[in-house]
Write a protein that binds this DNA or RNA. Structure first.
Length: 424
RNA sequence: GGAGACGUGUCCGAGUGGUUGAAGGAGCACGCCUGGAAAGUGUGUAUAUGGGAAACUGUAUCGCGAGUUCGAAUCUCGCCGUCUCCGCCA
């Protein structure tokens, strides 16, 4: 959520930045400023009346102590009149506040100045490419066939148990996934991230904190009976760990990592995009999250990008890094780098990580602050990234590393997987 | 799921209708004391938001929300959480 004071002081900048995100209702900015004026007026009126009530109450107390009952009764009548006047103001103030909140929540985060101006995924900027795209042998297959040949994942049974889009990992497939999770977590904790194992369901307030609510509830599984949401990413519970708190400056930066299952309804997704492991309702992911001082956040973003990049290098996968354009970025992000790996048999780039700086957009909602040198409390910046999303990594590994005698396991992973080759 | 107890500041803990943003203690910060430290001692020590150059000051906050009252940490209702006992259970 943007801060109204910032909007007030930078209205033109806000409008210009929103345009980069192709936000359709830039008129909202002026509307919010007007509403804020009115809100202030009404709040002041209400508070002034309250001040009168409060001081009169104290006087009543003093009068009662002196035994001046009549004078006290007179005061009471005056207070009652003020309160009546105030209750009228409060009703319209409440309506105005609700309206204001609903509207300011519609404003997406402002994109960083480095964000490309484009609108569609084609406008994303390729920052760099790494690794080498393998030359596959003639019989090379897409991962959904490899999976069958090697009996690694059983989609039919997954569909029988839950529905389409739910995978049943099996045997070496299950072990490969487990090995990757273990490897990613070890890699992250070695870099100073503290490991968390969060709840996989969260309440409304938590989903609101990271920006899933309101508006995006359709993307989450909702357990209505208990008012809980299945997490679409560990970002949601883990970033909220520090919700409503003031962090000691010496504790910053806070670096957290978590492995979790992620649940996404993916309503409306279809076509070749959802083949095999490309898009699932439930998938496994290891996430890294940082809470840092505002002055450090872009440096931290670069750090996190490097962190994820090295992991892909260890996995020996061909990858590229994209700087997302304004139109393709998420609502909450100020700058996002996507990581894609090339899945050779599909001849397709698959997104396996998305590393973003949210600046204060999430922390303003969650009220995550720290005390700066001057003793003033300031919102921290939140960042997160995947390191990494499992199914697509597995898809790319299977496709890129296939050979006539089996699937090569990257060196870094061998001690976790326990073998150098996945054989039939 | 049933019964009961509880939820106060960084922490412990007082407070059951009236100048209580909240006693007391611990912790922490700064100072005094000391050769240095401990002990002792003095002062300070919540957050948000409005006004003000500042000093200062209005408002809100004692789990959350609503209500009663001139006035609520204190009374009432709802919700959330913690603990104990019972039930169930990996």
């Amino acid at each position: 959520m943007l801060q109204i004071n910032f909007i007030k002081q930078n209205a033109d900048l806000v409008k210009e930045r929103l345009a980069v995100k192709h936000f359709g209702q830039i008129g909202l900015v002026d509307e919010l400023l007007q509403m804020d004026e009115e809100l202030r007026k009404q709040r002041l009126a209400s508070e002034n009346l309250q001040a009168s009530v409060n001081s009169a109450s104290k006087e009543i107390c003093a009068l009662m102590a002196k035994g001046e009952k009549e004078a006290a009764e007179e005061k009471k009548a005056a207070v009652t009149a003020w309160k009546e006047e105030q209750s009228g103001i409060k009703i319209s103030l409440q309506a105005l506040e609700d309206d204001f909140t609903a509207k300011i929540l519609q404003l997406p985060n402002l994109p960083h100045t480095s964000v490309p101006r484009g609108k569609t995924p084609e406008d994303n900027e390729v920052v760099l490419e790494g690794g080498s795209i393998p030359t596959l042998f003639a019989d090379a297959k897409p991962h959904w066939e490899i999976i069958k040949d090697y009996d690694l994942v059983d989609f039919e049974t997954g569909a029988k148990l839950a529905g389409s889009g739910f995978a049943l990992f099996k045997g070496k497939g299950a072990k490969l996934q487990r090995a990757l999770i273990q490897y990613f977590l070890d890699y992250n904790t070695a870099a100073g991230y503290t490991e968390y194992a969060p709840p996989l369901m969260v309440n409304e307030a938590t989903a609101y904190g990271t920006g899933q609510l309101p508006d995006k509830e359709g993307q989450m599984y909702h357990v209505t009976e208990d008012k809980l949401y299945l997490i679409p990413t560990a970002e949601v519970p883990v970033t909220n760990v520090y919700a409503n708190s003031i962090i000691r400056e010496s504790d910053l930066p806070i670096k957290m990592t978590a492995y979790s299952s992620c649940f996404r309804r993916e309503a409306g997704s279809f076509g070749s995009d959802v083949r095999g492991l490309n898009r699932l309702h439930q998938f496994e992911k290891v996430e890294v999250i940082q809470l840092v001082k505002a002055s450090h956040s872009y440096q931290t973003l670069e750090e996190m990008v490097n962190h994820v990049e090295r992991l892909l290098q260890f996995l020996e996968l061909p990858y590229r890094i994209l700087r997302l354009c304004g139109g393709d970025m998420s609502f909450t992000s100020a700058l996002t780098y996507d990581f894609e790996v090339f899945s050779a048999a599909q001849q397709k780039w698959l997104e396996v990580s998305s590393v973003s700086n949210f600046e204060t957009f999430q922390t303003n909602r969650m009220k995550i602050r720290y005390k700066n040198e001057e003793g003033k409390t300031e919102l921290v910046h939140s960042l997160n990234g995947s390191s990494l999303a499992l199914p697509r990594i597995i898809a790319a590994l299977l496709e890129n590393n296939q050979s006539e005698n089996g699937i090569h396991v990257p060196k870094a992973l061998q001690r976790y997987f326990g073998a150098a080759l996945i054989e039939r």
